[in-house]
């Protein structure tokens, strides 16, 4: 009984100490710009639909950010998964591409900013489609190509690496036992390699989504950005609203954690066959 209660309370100990430390420090600092009170931040968080510093509500900004991340991330997945499977399965493709990819992998996504601005400027799907008005314009104009590319780079490499790894780590006995049952090369690919590498690919997709989300703030600091949680943070900083900065950080953290958990849940559902090992 006591043990269950203790193990239930245990994860709350550090957060409680943290919040207490924050509140004490804020009270002593007595300066909203250096460290706002816990209650000030909670007040902002409590009204996520309320417009903030002329930028729309917290929720609306989180929504815009999510749309941007998904745009760049889905492009990354659409390219990295097939490419990774090809490189994992087909040795010449690996030899052809791997050293080239290895050069780009270590470049932080943020380092692409100047190039992206030079190439894409503030163009968006809206400008490519020659839309100039209407709700579709407002939405599409928020998905700048430059931002999408930075998020794309963030998501691309984790997904690529794990797809290659996934295909390469398929156990040989699964392939061989199918071959002796009369499988063709296509059978092996469709019925053994793909499903067997799926767990690795899913893990890579989850990590890639996390990295893509982390690239958000830097992407939203690019010119042409007038919205999104990342922009909300930088804008709140320039108008000395540290409480909104912290609110934005909390929103990024919570959204990221929720996406990760949702992904893990899907993983567990789809990979039930792995058992508990």
């Amino acid at each position: 009984m006591f043990n269950r209660l203790a193990s239930l309370l245990l994860p709350l100990v550090i957060p409680a100490l943290f919040l207490w430390g924050w509140e004490t420090a804020a009270a002593r600092a007595a300066n909203d710009i250096i460290l706002p009170r816990l209650t000030d931040v909670l007040a902002v968080l409590a009204q996520p639909m309320q417009p903030l510093i002329g930028m729309g509500s917290l929720l609306a900004n989180v929504g815009i950010s999510l749309a941007r991340v998904l745009f760049g991330y889905l492009l990354a997945v659409a390219l990295a998964v097939p490419l990774g499977i090809l490189m994992g399965y087909f040795a010449p493709a690996h030899r052809l591409l791997n050293s080239f990819m290895a050069l780009f992998r270590p470049i932080p996504p943020l380092a692409w900013t100047p190039l992206m601005l030079a190439w894409f400027g503030i163009s968006s799907p809206a400008s490519s489609l020659d839309l100039e008005i209407g709700p579709a314009y407002i939405f599409l104009n928020n998905l700048k190509f430059s931002m999408a590319f930075i998020i794309f780079i963030g998501g691309f490499f984790p997904v690529l690496t794990s797809s290659i790894q996934g295909v390469r780590s398929v156990r040989r006995v699964l392939v061989e036992s199918s071959l002796v049952l009369g499988a063709s090369r296509l059978d092996i690919f469709r019925k053994v390699i793909l499903p067997a590498s799926w767990p690795h690919i899913l893990t890579g997709m989850r990590i890639g989504l996390g990295v893509a989300w982390m690239c958000l703030v830097s992407a939203e600091m690019l010119p042409g950005s007038m919205s999104g949680v990342g922009y909300l943070i930088t804008h709140a900083y320039t108008v000395a609203r540290t409480d909104i900065v912290i609110t934005g950080m909390i929103a990024i953290g919570v959204t990221g954690a929720l996406m990760d958990q949702a992904f893990r849940l899907c993983e567990r559902r789809m990979l039930f066959w792995r058992g508990r090992s």
């Binding site: 156990r171 006995v173 699964l174 061989e176 036992s177 199918s178 002796v180 049952l181 019925k191 053994v192 499903p195 067997a196 799926w198 066959w273 792995r274 058992g275």
Partner: peptide, 14 residues
């Protein structure tokens, strides 16, 4: 010509 392996040759997702 069939072949039975020592273990873990079944496809775990089936």
């Amino acid at each position: 010509i069939g072949l039975v392996f020592q273990d873990y040759s079944l496809l775990p997702w089936r």
